[in-house]
């Protein structure tokens, strides 16, 4: 084991490691594998008590088409995208500005404002729940994608500002000095000098926020209801009530709900990890 590199270990240990690796992985992902297997089972298997044996037939297409046909799951997924994508865009845009302001300029309250953004991250959702919901109802954006987007953008600004500010702070300040000497306007410095350098940070944040928002359940429950605006997390919860013991459908629904963030993760793995581990290495 670390720090001894495995290739310097005796052959026997190396062999053991190579065997242990897949076994550990299977054990680790066992609950998920079970769900995947169940999502292709015919209903008859569950009724006859064949929960863990080999499926009597593979009804993947049937189960998955069934949930799309008989439930609004397609609508839920669409709603999730309608909430997640604008949130990602606006949260990243707003925080690139706040982060820029806090990293580049020296002014009174700089630290205070920065700390308020950071502290906001830790606030328990519950203390925001009643007022935010009332506000949304009064503004007529309760049960709309817009209502969810606005809240998420506002809340995520806290985390994103922390992220952006630290990233910009690490950029060479001389670049900005040089631009100023040449008389470049401040907004052009932001747009033409800093923003292009921030691409990795923007990408990392975007993937991260996508996953956070996609997986949000609490605010989806508080700010939406019914299939018209509800995202997939809340939708899956209500479908679970309807399906009761139709576990093959619950499983298929779960797999579908999990796919977009998983795909995002695999496509953008490098950025994702860069985003998550910001600050984990000095």
């Amino acid at each position: 084991m670390f720090p001894t590199p495995i290739e310097k270990s005796p052959r026997s240990i190396r062999l053991m490691y190579n065997v242990a690796l897949p076994i550990a992985l299977i054990v680790w992902l066992l609950p998920l594998l079970a769900v995947a297997l169940t999502s292709v089972r015919p209903a008859a298997d569950l009724n006859s008590g064949n929960y863990w044996g080999w499926p009597t037939s593979f009804d993947m297409i049937e189960n998955y088409t069934q949930i799309f046909k008989n439930t609004p799951i397609g609508q839920y997924i669409l709603n999730s995208f309608r909430v997640t994508i604008p949130t990602v865009i606006f949260a990243v845009a707003l925080s690139s500005m706040t982060g820029f302001a806090l990293a580049i300029y020296k002014f009174r309250f700089n630290m205070t404002i920065f700390f308020i953004f950071v502290a906001g991250n830790f606030i328990p959702f519950q203390i925001l729940m009643v007022p935010v919901r009332d506000f949304s109802v009064n503004m007529g954006i309760y049960n709309t994608a817009t209502g969810l987007v606005l809240f998420h953008v506002a809340f995520q600004t806290g985390f994103c500002t922390l992220f952006m500010r630290n990233f910009i702070k690490a950029l060479p300040y001389e670049l900005i000095e040089a631009s100023r000497v040449e008389g470049v306007a401040e907004w052009r410095i932001y747009w033409f000098v800093v923003l292009p350098l921030m691409k990795p940070a923007l990408a990392a944040l975007a993937v991260l926020i996508f996953t956070f928002i996609w997986n949000d359940f609490f605010w989806a429950t508080v700010l939406t209801q019914g299939a018209d605006a509800q995202p997939i997390t809340a939708g899956l919860h209500s479908l679970n009530g309807q399906w009761a013991s139709a576990w093959h459908l619950v499983s298929a629904g779960s797999i579908i709900a999990a796919l977009p963030p998983v795909a995002m993760f695999f496509l953008m793995q490098k950025h994702f990890i860069a985003g998550l581990t910001l600050g984990a290495v000095k």
Binding site: S95, I113, I116, F117, I123, I127, V132, V153, T157, E186
Partner: peptide, 29 residues
């Protein structure tokens, strides 16, 4: 002057949102 005003302009939209949806609700609660 620009250097004095610029940070506030950059901060304004983010701060406004944060104020409405996070800071004020804490006190309302």
């Amino acid at each position: 002057d620009q250097k004095k005003i610029a940070p506030w302009l950059f901060l304004a939209p983010g701060m406004l949102m944060f104020l409405i949806y996070v800071i004020i609700p804490v006190f309302q609660s």
